[in-house]
Design a binder for these strands. Structure first.
Lengths: 243, 243
DNA sequence: TTATGAGAATTCATATAGGAATTGTGTTCA
DNA sequence: TGAACACAATTCCTATATGAATTCTCATAA
């Protein structure tokens, strides 16, 4: 049995947090094929826990849209995002995030410019030193950068709705390959500038541009696949995607 | 939220759907006081099922923001919305719903004018005949009306994010008293007109006005309570709130 | 060769039980 | 009188077992 030293505070639901982290990582890494069924008994035995916490984790993963439940058939991993789903996701982001950037670009303590700058220098350093998984670092930076702005907007409902989309999680799952994030970081810097200068209009527009560009970069990976997705031929190309 | 078929329908998770409906109703009706702890054993015995489905239901209700989990302390019902939370919720709606109304006001088959009109005549009839619970009918109408527009917008991500807020569910919980919904229905009719005429600008503005007005009506209930909410003196007034 | 049907095996959903932590209560001491 | 400690009771979290439904396999017949 793995160490019970769970990241969950106060040891409540120790098994659950371990199992959750393990299963989430398995799905994101693609160790469980997209669309494949998940055998509760097999998972519980392989992780050395009973079925009860595994079932609870599956329900949580259902909330993350990483698994789906079919009545009478149990749980399966969700298929990867197709182009319409990606478009819907980014349209949602285009609705929420420019609004958040505008709300954050105020001359108040809530202004997140300092935190954003710290985040940017951290990722710049991390990119220079080629240690570790550059791709994972970049996704983590991207996640924190956007989350920080959402948090600064000061609306818990919007923040929660955004978090629930798990957009970075799903895009990570789409493209488990190497990334060159220079463009992303440059756009982030532009957004930070506008927020630091307390220019709501510019912040809103910079964020909107960033999201439009980001979608275009992701959508490029679908080029040529047109409506052939049912071919199930291995999916979109997987190298040198730029977030 | 994909409400599990509460009827047998595939028999999968029969106990869970019953327990879910029962507990949700209990919380909404206030039979369980807001902020009170929930005893899993007591619930399971009173409903005649084991603890397993009760635990699953509680996790689901946590997703609905109707209960919260404290590590080591189990589940409690969430406190009622206070004024800042209500404001956050309506700011989210003000961000999403006018956008949805604009998106729905197109000359396409997706235009929901017919469904909206059917919904409006149904509630008008229901209001005339004083049979049944007028308040519950009105909330149900309001829910369906807004859901229909969100659906017509054609973005599953936005629709899901909106559904996850369970805004009608929480406002229902806030004001379990009688309602006079004439104003609400009139505003709905205005929104429908703009959508039926395929006037995106007018639809967007009509929806925005409706949400601003609706918030003002709800916020009125907090008048006088200022920052005295810790008094825990029974909450806001509960009669003649107009959605 | 293909389709069908019965039986076996797997898998899910729920029930029940036990260990561990927390909460409440009563007593004792300052 | 108030506070602190210890013990008991409650409550949660996980494990294991069982019944029911589905899926898989294989043999048989058209």
């Amino acid at each position: 049995m793995p160490t019970r030293q769970s990241s969950d505070a106060s040891k409540g639901k120790a098994a659950v947090s371990d199992v959750y982290a393990s299963m989430r990582a398995s799905i994101l890494k693609g160790e469980i094929a997209p669309g494949a069924r998940i055998n509760i008994d097999a998972v519980s035995r392989s992780l050395g826990v009973s079925q009860t916490p595994v079932r609870e984790v599956l329900q949580r993963l259902e909330g993350d849209n990483l698994v789906v439940y079919s009545p009478g058939r149990g749980y399966s991993t969700t298929p990867l995002l197709d182009l319409p789903a990606l478009r819907s996701l980014f349209e949602f982001r285009l609705l929420v995030e420019p609004w958040a950037a505008r709300s954050a670009a105020v001359d108040r303590l809530a202004n997140p410019a300092a935190a954003l700058e710290k985040e940017l220098s951290a990722i710049r350093n991390s990119m220079k030193t080629t240690s570790g998984d550059a791709r994972q670092d970049l996704v983590a930076h991207d996640t924190r950068f956007h989350d920080t702005i959402l948090l600064a907007a000061g609306n818990p409902v919007v923040q929660h709705a955004y978090a629930q989309t798990h957009c970075h999680l799903h895009t990570f799952r789409l493209y488990p390959a190497d990334i060159d994030g220079a463009i992303t970081i440059a756009e982030h810097a532009t957004v930070r500038e506008a927020i630091a200068s307390c220019l709501p209009d510019r912040a809103e527009e910079a964020m909107a541009q960033h999201i439009r560009n980001s979608f275009a970069r992701f959508a490029k990976a679908f080029e040529g696949t047109a409506d052939l997705s049912p071919l199930e031929n291995g999916g979109p190309p997987r190298r040198h995607i730029v977030t």
